[in-house]
Simulated scan of single mutants.
Amino acid sequence: MHRFSIEEIIYKIQKEECFEAVTEDYSFMIKIDGYAPYVCGAVHDGHQFRKSLWENCLHTEYDRWYEEDPCTKEMVQSHPIVIAGLDSRFEYDLNRAPETAIYHDAWGKQLWKSPLPEAEREHSLQKHQNFYQVVHALVEKIQSKYGKALVFDMHSYNWKRWDREVPTWNLGTANIDNERYGHLAESWSAKLGTIKLPNAIKSTSKINDTFQGNGYFLKYITQNFKNTLVLATEISKIYCDEYTGILYPEVVRSVETQLKELIPLQVKEFQEDK
């Protein structure tokens, strides 16, 4: 994996080069093994939290981990195009618009001991902007090459905080063109429901049950690229213990193995859809 500037990454995408890179500041990674008609994104996979923020932060490392989406990049790492955040959403949230990307409080708890200095805010927002410059160049390239593009927007959520039974998989479709793509969202949800998990973990799939797909990553791409469908795909954190931070690698591997088969099937269906 190489370390490139944002300008170098965008240049390589425009020239249709295959590469794997981290940005110069290590804020996100991108891998392109081939220019396939789809992209896998994991915007909340990151856990890094820059040192200049440590002393001012009221949340513990576990508090941050609990709200992040660990292993979501790993679940799609075998696909040809992967882009994933390396920084924690507590530094800046890639799934929020720039004006709300830096938290004042998080999940009901104040985040900073004292207000962030302007220089720290600007530092974080520059990283956010850099990510979306690359996303724009990437989706633009794929859509121009194939006429349309499919983006798998991978997330996870804490199922134990709900006081009712919630699905293993949730697909958020409130902000896609449902008249045009609703049937494809339903077929993706159905495919997710076929995934078999180890340790007798139940696998269910629903649409707009726990989340509706209101994230900025989906909205940004949908608003800028009329022929690109973003499937906001959430897995409940059945692949770890939310309360202790222990990961279950056999569950993560099982999901990755089955998505390796299911994602290409969904891409084929999307490409053949008129």
Results as ranks from 00 to 15, higher is better:
Ile246Glu: 14
Met154Lys: 02
Ile207Lys: 12
Ile263Thr: 12
Leu231Val: 14
Gly41Pro: 01
Pro249Gly: 08
Leu197Pro: 09
Lys145Arg: 13
Phe152Ile: 11
Gln110His: 09
Ser27Gly: 11
Leu259Trp: 10
Glu16Phe: 09
Ile10Ala: 08
Lys145Ala: 14
Val134Ala: 04
His59Pro: 01
Tyr220Gly: 10
Ile102Cys: 04
Trp112Leu: 02
Ala190Met: 07
Leu138His: 03
Asp209Ala: 08
Ser88Val: 03
Ser156Asn: 09
Gly108Thr: 13
Thr173His: 05
Ala84His: 01
Glu261Tyr: 09
Glu179Ala: 14
His136Asn: 14
Glu67Asp: 11
Lys113Asn: 13
Glu55Trp: 05
Val151Arg: 01
Arg253Leu: 07
Ala36Tyr: 09
Leu247Ile: 15
Pro249Val: 03
Arg50Gly: 01
Val39Met: 02
Glu186His: 08
Ser78Arg: 12
Glu16Asn: 15
Lys260Ser: 13
Gln14Thr: 04
Val139Gln: 03
Gln126Gly: 11
Gly147Arg: 08
Thr222Leu: 06
Leu94Ala: 04
Val166Asp: 05
Arg89Thr: 06
Tyr181Phe: 13
Ser203His: 00
Glu17Leu: 11
Lys237Tyr: 01
Ser124Leu: 09
Pro80Trp: 07
Val39Arg: 03
Gly41Ser: 15
Glu74Val: 00
Leu86Gln: 06
Glu269Ala: 12
Ser205Arg: 01
Lys202Met: 10
Trp169Leu: 03
Pro198Ala: 00
Leu86Val: 03
Asp63Ile: 11
Gly182His: 12
Gln266Gly: 07
Leu231Glu: 08
Lys274Trp: 04
Trp169Arg: 02
Ser5Glu: 15
Phe211Val: 12
Lys268Trp: 07
Ala36Pro: 00
Gly85Leu: 04
Thr233Met: 13
Lys196Arg: 15
Thr168Leu: 10
Thr23Lys: 13
Ile142Gln: 00
Trp112Arg: 02
Gln212Phe: 10
Tyr103Asp: 06
Val22Leu: 14
Val252Leu: 03
Asp63Phe: 05
Met1Cys: 03
Asp241Asn: 14
Val267Glu: 02
Pro264Phe: 04
Tyr62Cys: 00
Trp169Ala: 11
Trp65Ser: 00
Asp105Ala: 14
Ser124Tyr: 13
Thr60Glu: 05
Phe270Tyr: 12
Glu256Ile: 00
Ile6His: 13
Lys191Asp: 15
Val139Glu: 01
Asn175His: 13
Asp241Val: 07
Asn227Met: 10
Ser52Trp: 09
Leu265Met: 13
Lys109Asp: 04
Tyr146Asn: 06
Leu150Asp: 06
His79Asn: 02
Tyr239Met: 12
Thr228Asn: 07
Trp169Gly: 02
Pro98Ile: 11
Glu118Met: 10
Ile83His: 04
Asp153Ser: 02
